[in-house]
Amino acid sequence: MQAKKLKYKEYLEKYKNCPTSDFIEVERDAFRWTGTDVSLEDFIPVNIKRKPPARILDDSDKMCMAYGLSMFDTLNNALKKYFKLYKKQRIHQQEHFKQDKGTKIAMINLTKNDGIADLPNKNNFGHFTFHEYKETNLVGKISDLYSVFKSNGDFNI
């Protein structure tokens, strides 16, 4: 049996213990913010994306976690975190936020062959980080797609 390799290994190797030993294979439903027309672009870690560039002030921001994917343990948590971050932004940044993070929430059933994750953070809306295996295609695993906003522009909470 072939050893499973993580995507973006060349970046992860630059960090000591990356990902840390608390990252394990999981079988669970996961929820990730995506665009309306979901594509592979929606599953590129923030520090890999060039446009727009990652928010980095110094090397301490170039951390292991930023080469993984942000996910949430429940739909409600994914919505609440989106709502909270969105409301804190200035008006023009809210539009950027929609463009960058999308306005949909994809439900994905993660299996042990997809990658490794840490535990959902109860103090951060069940957020967890997921590192995909090299051959994983999460776009093909989306089972449902929810809208963040109602048709009248209100939040779908």
Binding site: K51, P52, P53, R55, L57, H92, Q93, H96
Partner: peptide
């Protein structure tokens, strides 16, 4: 350092 803006090439603080 307060992040206020961005385009496709820069983040503005």
């Amino acid at each position: 350092f307060d992040w206020v803006d961005r385009d496709q090439d820069y983040n503005r603080w």
